[in-house]
């Protein structure tokens, strides 16, 4: 991989897109010394293209900024960002002709000296859809690259664990949670304008900040993300307390895959699995046969 070549290709692409007026802004990442990893930036002038960067610490999922900006937007997106974008397209939250995807090949990112959450088990280094391709050598073709597996494989762990072990693990992780809702805010699929947990009249968030509210929040959010979670791990990457949410969401993803044979974030034209119903479904739903 050659991050300098990729950065140069990205800057050239952003400069061209903004100079020619193809897009109004480019969403990408910019070096941030104080934080220690590149952080999001929205640039509107071709002169600012030099602020963009692509390196081994670009783990932040910036698809969430597509929901916070308007107009024709280009985005420097890696495979996980694109999965999120595909889900947003499928759910009619974005218009395809307004989004210009600069597909950045990504062999897996590093956070705090270790593979970023989820990166070591990423299904592909190549974005699913893109308008422009920047391979890992900076050229316009994708190379053959993948990160070595590292640490515990959550999927395998899920398969080999009993329900009691999974519950114990979930509770152990949740005990670290401080209910700041950063996971929700960083999640490109969590775009409700009014989250269930914020509705003051409801009992969710009232007492026992310890386990009860945390369980209510995390399990309800997981239910809402069934068939919508793309396993981008944005939630885990931003968690200040280091809660490993994959031990919850990997289970949801496996369940959707096993039950409906559906993988989220692959086909923008596929109907979201929880929005589709056919008379052949094993569960009859409201038809009540």
């Amino acid at each position: 991989m050659d991050y300098t070549a990729q950065t140069n290709a990205l800057r050239a692409a952003a400069d061209k897109l903004l100079s020619e007026g193809t897009v109004d802004c480019v969403i990408g990442l910019t070096p941030n010394e104080a934080v220690g990893f590149p952080t999001p930036i929205v640039i509107r002038n071709p002169e600012d293209a030099g602020k963009l960067v692509w390196d081994e610490n670009c783990f932040t999922n910036i698809a969430v900024y597509l929901l916070r900006t308007t107009g024709r937007r280009a985005i420097a997106a890696k495979a996980c960002d694109v999965r999120s974008i595909i889900n947003l397209l499928a759910e009619n939250q974005l218009k395809r002709d307004e989004i210009y995807i600069i597909g950045m090949q990504c062999p897996g990112m590093i956070k705090d000296g270790e593979p970023a959450p989820g990166c070591d088990q990423c299904p592909s280094s190549v974005p699913g859809i893109s308008d422009l391709t920047i391979g890992s050598d900076g050229s316009d073709t994708y190379q053959d690259e993948k990160m070595e597996p590292h640490g515990e494989n959550v999927t395998e762990w899920m398969e080999n664990s009993t329900d009691a072990e999974k519950k114990e693990r979930f509770l152990k992780e949740i005990d670290k949670c401080i209910l700041c809702f950063t996971c929700r805010q960083a999640c490109p699929a969590c775009y409700c304008t009014a989250c269930f947990i914020d509705r003051k009249a409801d009992p969710w968030r009232q007492i026992d900040a310890d386990r009860a509210t945390k369980i209510a929040f995390h399990l309800t959010r997981a239910m809402h993300l069934a068939g919508r979670c793309t396993d981008c791990c944005a939630c885990e990457k931003v968690c200040a307390s280091g809660v490993n949410l994959r031990y919850l969401y990997r289970g949801i993803i496996e369940f959707v895959s096993d039950t409906y044979g559906f993988t989220t974030g692959v086909d923008p034209d596929a109907r979201p699995v929880m929005n589709s119903f056919t008379s052949e479904d094993s569960e009859t739903g409201f038809l009540g046969r």
Binding site: I178, C180, F181, T182, Q185, A186, V238, A240
Partner: peptide, 13 residues
């Protein structure tokens, strides 16, 4: 505040 996602981490820590 352009890149703020409103997560509240800053205020909690």
């Amino acid at each position: 505040a352009m890149s703020c996602i409103g997560c509240g981490t800053c205020t909690y820590v």
